[in-house]
């Protein structure tokens, strides 16, 4: 199958452009519902970031200003949970896992905000990891995609993990800069005009990957696209043109729905794209 698209025009659009079988639904959330700090000299604007997607497409945002997790269920008003400082959020069923890399703690919290258990992180978890949950097993995915043993969810608690200390990246993506081709799971993506390109699986799920392509230089012009690995769907993700550019803006729910955080001037939207 060959899928060819011109990105540039779509990338300038304010809303995602969906190609293929998917349908986009957006849910507007006013900025008043979360903490927000406008840009100042030496610091871009701070607003919520999309850290995880849970059952039924619920979005788990982290609000760094109020230090809250904001849960946005489809069609419902946001619910806020006070969590303090943290580095990552993941879902373990209906519960939340909170990673505090600085304080070296992993917390299991119910969706209503009750702390169920807290476990000190093992000393061998390197910085820059994200949570990767596979059933009851909780691992930390490092910058190379390898998985470090972290913990197991046991009922309403956490216990030290079992198994190997390190599991190699089960599905590496490779960018061939010379051929301008990205290879993954038997598929290939040609990025003929990219000066640089990078690809990542979203939340470790192989269904969706997100690809950034640098298509202009001095300053960098980047175009972003989320793709179904089977080629059935492609979404052009508009990059923020204003001062607020979330560091994390995409996640995949357990049912395969792609969630996007779409910043705006006085509100933001959660975009949901179902396969």
């Amino acid at each position: 199958m060959l899928l060819a698209m011109s990105l540039s025009a779509a990338a300038m659009a304010a809303a995602p452009v969906v190609s293929g079988d998917g349908q986009l639904r957006t849910q507007r959330v006013p900025l008043e519902a979360v903490g927000f700090a406008h840009a100042v000299e030496e610091r871009p604007a701070m607003g919520p970031e999309l850290y995880a997607a849970g059952p039924a497409g619920v979005a788990a945002l982290y609000d760094p200003v109020r230090r809250e997790v904001v849960l946005v269920a489809d069609g419902a008003a946001p619910e806020r949970l006070s969590v303090g400082r943290l580095d990552d959020v993941a879902f373990a069923g209906d519960a939340l896992l909170l990673l505090d890399e600085s304080g070296r703690l992993l917390t299991l919290m119910s969706a209503s905000g009750e702390v169920l258990d807290v476990l000190p992180l093992p000393g061998l978890v390197p910085p820059g990891c994200r949570l990767a949950v596979d059933g009851a097993e909780v691992r930390a995915r490092d910058v190379f995609g390898n998985l470090h043993r972290l913990a197991e969810v046991t009922g309403q608690g956490l216990s030290e993990g079992a198994g190997p200390a390190l599991v190699e990246n089960p599905s590496p993506i490779q960018w061939d800069a010379e051929a301008r081709v990205m290879r993954f799971d038997g598929g290939e993506l040609a990025l003929t005009d990219a000066l640089k390109a990078g690809g990542q699986w979203l939340d470790g799920a192989r269904g969706w990957l997100v690809v950034d392509a640098v298509v202009g230089d001095m300053p960098l012009v980047v175009e972003r696209r989320a793709l179904r690995a089977d080629g059935s769907m492609s979404v052009t993700v508009p990059l923020a043109q204003g001062a607020w550019a979330p560091g994390r803006d995409a996640a995949v729910s357990p049912d395969g729905t792609l969630l996007l955080l779409l910043p705006g001037d006085d509100a933001f939207s959660i975009g949901r794209i179902s396969p």
Binding site: R130, D142, A197, P219, A245, G247
Partner: peptide, 23 residues
């Protein structure tokens, strides 16, 4: 970074985080 409020190693924000930056 202001989010998450410390010095960090960032390996997942990708090139899109650097849109508009210069090397």
């Amino acid at each position: 970074a202001g989010t998450p409020d410390k010095v960090r190693l960032n390996g997942d924000s990708g090139w899109s985080y650097l849109n508009g930056y210069e090397a």
